[in-house]
């Protein structure tokens, strides 16, 4: 028995996610979901979305979204150069670099 699916149905989730939807978000997130895993992943995610769907029952009209718990405003930084050149140290962390550049497989624009 898959508790998640039942929960999703109870919460009136329109439909569990289908494979093309999983493909789309996996592509956006640059993650691979193999055809073998797609069903399982879709079920798990649908289950989570079912949990999330409890929110839909609540009337939030007129409630201002809260992006941040702090009721504060952005501090401004003085326009000063505080960083020094650490290129050699930082490039050393890169999996692939050459001539001071980070390397990626050739990009065609």
């Amino acid at each position: 028995m898959n508790l998640g699916i039942i929960r999703a149905r109870e919460a009136n989730l329109p439909q569990p996610l289908n494979t093309p939807e999983i493909d789309k978000i996996a592509t956006l997130a640059r993650l691979r979901v193999s055809p073998g895993e797609a069903g399982e992943v879709a079920a798990r995610i649908s289950e989570i979305l079912g949990l999330i769907d409890q929110m839909r029952a609540v009337d939030t009209d007129g409630v201002e979204p809260l992006a941040h718990p702090l009721d504060a405003v952005q501090r401004l930084r003085a326009d000063e150069v505080s960083e020094t050149d650490r290129r050699e140290e930082l490039l050393a962390l890169a999996p692939a670099s050459r001539d001071g550049l980070f390397l990626v497989p050739k990009v065609i624009e």
């Binding site: 929110m55 839909r56 939030t60 409630v63 979204p65 809260l66 992006a67």
Partner: peptide, 8 residues
């Protein structure tokens, strides 16, 4: 929706 609930 979640951000509105967050305010609530």
């Amino acid at each position: 929706k979640a951000q509105r609930i967050r305010r609530l």
